[in-house]
Design a protein around this nucleic acid. Structure first.
Length: 776
DNA sequence: GATTAGGATTCG
């Protein structure tokens, strides 16, 4: 049944067949029985007819309709998406305009696949040409109603362009060149665009002013062109800017804000433009336009490639009249050694890249000929993108023939394949992941080398020294309407569903809102870890049994050592043949016991614990051929009040050289470790959460950010029952014992998505960053 | 109300 027209909105009500009952859009649910129901609403958006590849090319049209006769208090789910199929889609497209009021009957009600994205309505209506019926009442004069004033511009689908007309069009960019000087008087931009009709149209834009040219960052950007004339060239339709023209571009990332990029100070931009952009983004995503993206990170560049590189400028230098050197990085490590182009330091503008060079992070890009103009204006620190950059293996001037060649980068002259470069505004959404990689660079780099298998798999037996926290009642304040955490990051990336996060390509930093489904380790004392930043070893805090054994073995048949530098006092223990000795550096004699570093020999673990109540800093030692030596590093090398400091067995030298601490005001684990030749192991908290937001679940680690997350220092927690209880209380609030998922609070989290190599296989990992418990 | 370009790898 085709779309039927009536003249007056009240006629629509008269058209309602007697057996049909009018239903409010707000009241529709997937379980509503659609038979004998109809809805009446205004068309607030009408999309184009598209042919759906997944459904044998059937034609479809999506519209959004909004209920108008509403009590004022109703604001939720007042509009709904309607999908028209087959001939009804075409008929609706021709007969109905935005702003018209329609009556729809005999629809089916389906779950809306876009609800999480558009927040419109949990359901959508589907209208099939054979059964459904549509009555339309055309809206009044074009000057009335908000939707009519929006229909100020009409946009011609790219398959409907007629020769020698002036048109407005929307399209997705499939090819572009940065503006270049033409042989005439202007700069010229050339691009190619497409839309749902799948027709590709070439387009040339001439303008003297560079800033008037469209701001295109990448293939997949959306562009809106006003007042372009159509011409046929080589049997193809082309577009050319004409008087009063304008160009506005948007990024093509689904779900990112619809931010118009244009130099034009006044331009019309309304709700329907937003819809059009979003529809083109959706369509483009299914067209593999974006999956053919030539963008590559330095970590995956191979010799001989042409590719696009998004990066930050570190330094630059003019080489000669036809070449300028740009030193850039993107925070990823290249697999091939990078060529370093030597430049006199006074010729270099920007920061020194020595440290980054050493880590193979700096790409030296030689920019030639016509591209020098754009390169000259760039300031160090700027984010930029190279298009069609070439990577080549080259022998460094001082290199031996048997050494591996180095990777150099050339931006050759000319504009073929869109070759060029441009700066990117720092706030650009597509820069967010790069920026977070750069900011977290040092941490990520360190983390890269940790075997994540260790992090995930190995949960050691509980150390007895850390007492089991009480099972406290969950905090009754947990409020499902608010997030129990707060994000502290400064970047402003879009919140993503977990399902989308799982589909994303690392590295990426993003925001999510989720609940905790499970956490690991269930016994929280197991989350306290010791970590060596040098060899990346992670282990549990040794239990008291193991430590006591080391003390017993050291004390057995121990003869007090005799060191020239030390003043020693000895006493017999209660056990026959065991002597307890205390040594201090002679120049510390007479200082307060809190200022002294005391070397203790011959005690049991229990005894040194008793001593540590009165003496602030105790280093347990043993005697080796009469000389003082450290104990086995299973035991702490320093007892400092409630805290015990451990050294890494693999990385410590145990040189015991610098025992003199003259002038040291306070002792901390690090200072004592350095003096003793010990590599300090740092305390950390490691918890794995299984997050759930209804769209999917994923396992996220809390590690580098754990102390900030709980507002607890790990080293302090190692010696404090109160702080361990605090962590347990927080865990019990975000995942109350025996609670169902729905009862648990939502958490707003910043998530870092990255890859680690595990047995040469890249594995995607998720880590919670920049998020903290909200303390009311 | 003219003209430019109209994609399709440099060669350092």
């Amino acid at each position: 049944m085709p779309v039927q027209k009536v003249n007056d909105s009240s006629d629509l009500d008269a058209k309602v067949p007697a057996h049909l009952q009018r239903t409010a859009i707000t009241g529709l649910t997937v379980t509503s029985d659609p038979s004998h129901r109809c809805v009446k609403a205004r068309v607030v958006h009408k999309g184009p007819v598209i042919s759906c590849a997944q459904k044998d090319g059937i034609e479809m049209l999506r519209a959004e309709i909004r209920e108008e006769d509403l009590p004022q208090s109703t604001t939720e789910h007042t509009s709904i998406n309607v999908i028209f199929f087959g001939t009804l889609a075409k008929d609706f497209s021709q007969s109905v305009r935005q702003g018209d009021v329609v009556l729809l009957a005999d629809f089916t009600i389906k779950k809306s696949p876009s609800f999480l994205r558009d927040k419109r309505h949990p359901c959508q209506l589907e209208m099939d040409g054979n059964d459904a019926c549509v009555y339309v009442c055309p809206s009044a004069a074009p000057s009335q109603g908000p939707s009519c004033s929006e229909a100020k511009y009409t946009y011609v689908p790219l398959n409907n362009l007629k020769h020698k007309t002036v048109v407005n069009v929307y399209g997705v960019v499939t090819f572009f060149k940065q503006p270049f000087p033409s042989k005439g008087s202007d700069y010229c931009s050339t691009l190619k665009i497409t839309d749902q009709s799948d027709v590709k149209v070439s387009c040339s834009i001439f303008s003297k002013k560079l800033e008037d040219h469209p701001v295109i960052f990448r293939v997949g950007d959306i562009i809106r062109l006003h007042r372009f004339k159509t011409e046929i060239f080589n049997d193809s339709m082309t577009l050319l800017n004409t008087y009063g023209w304008s160009a506005v571009t948007f990024d093509g990332i689904i779900d990112s804000p619809v931010d118009p990029r244009t130099s034009s100070k006044s331009f019309h931009f309304g709700e329907s433009d937003k819809n059009t952009v979003q529809e083109l983004r959706q369509w483009a995503a299914s067209q593999s336009l974006i999956s053919n993206d030539p963008t590559v990170s330095l970590s995956s560049v191979h010799p001989g490639m042409y590719f696009d590189l998004t990066c930050q400028l570190l330094a630059k230098a003019v080489m000669d009249s036809r070449c300028i050197l740009l030193k850039v990085w993107d925070g990823t490590k290249c697999e091939h050694p990078l060529l370093n182009v030597a430049v006199a330091s006074d010729a270099l503008e920007g920061e020194s890249t020595v440290a980054k060079d050493r880590m193979n992070l700096t790409a030296n890009v030689l920019v030639y000929d016509n591209h020098m103009e754009a390169a000259q204006d760039l300031k160090p620190g700027t984010f930029l993108r190279f298009y069609n950059l070439r990577s080549l293996l080259q022998r460094a001037p001082d290199q031996q023939p048997d050494q591996a060649e180095h990777l150099s980068f050339h931006l050759h002259g000319g504009t073929t394949y869109g070759r060029g470069l441009r700066s990117l505004p720092a706030g650009s959404p597509e820069l967010q992941s790069l920026k977070s990689v750069l900011e977290n660079h040092v941490d990520l780099d360190e983390y890269d080398e940790v075997n994540d298998g260790t992090l995930l798999e190995i949960w050691y037996t509980p150390p007895e020294a850390v007492v089991l926290p009480n099972d406290e009642e969950p905090d009754g304040e947990a409020d499902t309407a608010h997030s129990y955490t707060v994000r502290t990051c400064e970047h402003n990336t879009q919140q993503l569903t977990l399902a989308r996060v799982k589909r994303s390509t690392p590295p990426l930093s993003c925001h999510v809102r989720a609940r905790v489904k499970k956490y690991h380790p269930q016994q929280l004392y197991q989350c306290l870890k010791l970590f060596c930043s040098k060899c990346k070893t992670m282990k549990d805090v040794p239990d008291d049994g193991a430590v006591a054994k080391v003390f017993r073995e050291s004390a057995r048949e121990n003869q007090p050592c005799d060191e020239q530098w030390a003043a020693t006092s000895s006493a017999s223990s209660r056990e026959a043949g065991r002597t307890i000795s205390m040594h201090i550096s002679k120049d510390m004699v007479g200082q307060s016991t809190h200022m002294q570093l005391i070397f203790v020999e011959g005690t049991t673990l229990d005894e040194i614990c008793v001593l540590s109540r009165d003496y602030k800093n105790l280093v347990p030692v043993r005697s080796e051929n009469g000389r003082m030596a450290l104990m086995d590093l299973t035991a702490p090398f320093l007892f400092s009040g409630d805290k015990r400091y451990y050294g890494c067995k693999r990385c410590s030298l145990n040189t015991f050289e610098n025992h003199v601490f003259t002038g040291v005001e306070t002792y901390d684990g690090q200072a004592v470790a350095e003096a003793l030749g010990v590599q300090l192991m740092r305390y950390g908290l490691l918890i794995q959460f299984e997050l759930d937001d209804g769209t999917d679940t994923l396992e996220a680690l809390l590690w580098e950010n754990a102390e900030k997350f709980f507002h607890v220092s790990a080293v302090d927690a190692s010696g404090s029952q109160d702080l361990q209880d605090k962590i347990q209380t927080i865990i019990d609030t975000i995942q109350p014992p025996q609670s169902s998922l729905e009862e648990r609070p939502w958490l707003d989290l910043c998530l870092s998505v990255y890859t680690v190599k595990d047995n040469n296989i890249n594995k995607v990992c998720y880590q919670i960053t920049d998020s903290e418990i909200r303390e009311e």
